[in-house]
Design a binder for these strands. Structure first.
Lengths: 116, 116
DNA sequence: TTTAAATGCAACCCCTATGTTGCGCTTTCG
DNA sequence: CGAAAGCGCAACATAGGGGTTGCATTTAAA
């Protein structure tokens, strides 16, 4: 029914910046390190990345803009951590979108095959 | 086990271009139209997008580079369609990566909460 | 065989994401 | 207090993504 289509239209604007944020190797690694090693300071997160601390700061803000990570002050450090709730929501978004593609394609599969 | 980590290391390089390809509104809409309406020519896919046919062509190639869509000749037209197998694999990639983040975060949740 | 449709190719913009350096501010520590 | 660690801010450089225009090429249609 047309409710599927409107639901997709609502999710799409959210999905775009989410995917864009995930489409970078440095940011994916940051998420990996945060998931493996709890809250970490910027300096810690910069070690071994091959880029400067400022570059890492920007990547963290990019992830923060879509809600995947959060930050807090701790003394003179600024520690960042995963936002697990947002991460869960993001996963559901992705699953739903993928499911829609699957469903629509599945419904038309026989028809499409006839045309080929 | 360390096998999880190495599996993640193998998936990450594939996930980056995949996410990057999905991080664009025009490309997400193209996938939506293809999933809803079978194979379509470039001219058809360009209608109503607000950008030129050449721009759409590039977006299709971007999606094609990560295997999400394929093309074929049909007369003087070039028709593009979803690659459902690749779409399925992409979905599984995403699920696995998200699951890893979840798992790692879950294992450390209590520890992290202690520190806060 | 003309004409028009559908593309492919290539040269060009233009903006922004990514990265850097330099400097100043705050907090911690000897 | 004085030095150093950890950041934030701002200016700057630059490569690449996204878009356009112009023209040649192939194929369908009159």
């Amino acid at each position: 029914m047309s409710r599927n289509r409107s639901a997709a239209a609502l999710q799409l604007p959210d999905a775009v910046p989410l995917f864009a944020a995930l489409g970078d190797a440095t940011r994916l690694r940051l998420l990996g390190r945060l998931s493996a090693g709890g809250p970490l300071s910027i300096t810690r997160l910069s070690e071994g990345t091959g880029v400067t601390r400022q570059a890492i700061t920007r990547h963290l803000h990019a992830l923060g803009d879509v809600g995947l990570v959060r930050h807090a002050r701790r003394g003179r450090e600024r520690v960042w951590d995963l936002n697990r709730k947002r991460l869960e929501r993001a996963k559901r978004y992705i699953d739903q979108i993928a499911a829609q593609w699957d469903d629509a394609a599945e419904r038309l599969r026989a028809f499409v095959e006839d045309q080929e």
